[in-house]
């Protein structure tokens, strides 16, 4: 297989996605779950830029990537706020204990 830059970065996308997905599946700490989400979004960002480079439309994908970065940051902020408030109310960061939020 010809390993062009495009293919190398697609392999990178797959590796980062796999790492993030694995983290989401096994982690129980709320803050680490947000970290795993961040890794997945970074993989998506890399995929976006790769697609732009492959089709010579790098400016279009750059403008899309800016949107993704903003959304990603907001997700991180909300996730952190959620984690801090859960820690204050329930005294734990374990996502299994969140089931006690059931009304």
């Amino acid at each position: 297989m010809d390993l062009s830059i495009i293919n190398i970065s697609l392999i990178g996308v797959i590796c980062l996605l796999a790492v993030g997905l694995y983290g989401l599946l096994i982690l129980r700490n709320l803050i680490k779950v947000v970290i795993a989400l961040q890794i997945i979004v970074k993989a998506a960002l890399l995929g976006l830029i790769t697609a732009g480079a492959a089709r010579d439309q790098i400016n279009l994908t750059q403008s899309l990537a800016v949107t993704v970065i903003v959304a990603d940051t907001v997700v991180a902020v909300i996730g952190m706020a959620f984690a801090v408030q859960v820690r204050r109310r329930l005294g734990t960061l374990d996502i299994r204990d969140l089931s006690s939020l059931r009304g």
Binding site: L10, I14, D56
Partner: peptide, 13 residues
């Protein structure tokens, strides 16, 4: 995804 061959539209952007 793999393998991907690049570059179809070299039009100016």
């Amino acid at each position: 995804l793999l393998p991907q061959t690049g570059n179809s539209s070299p039009a100016s952007e």
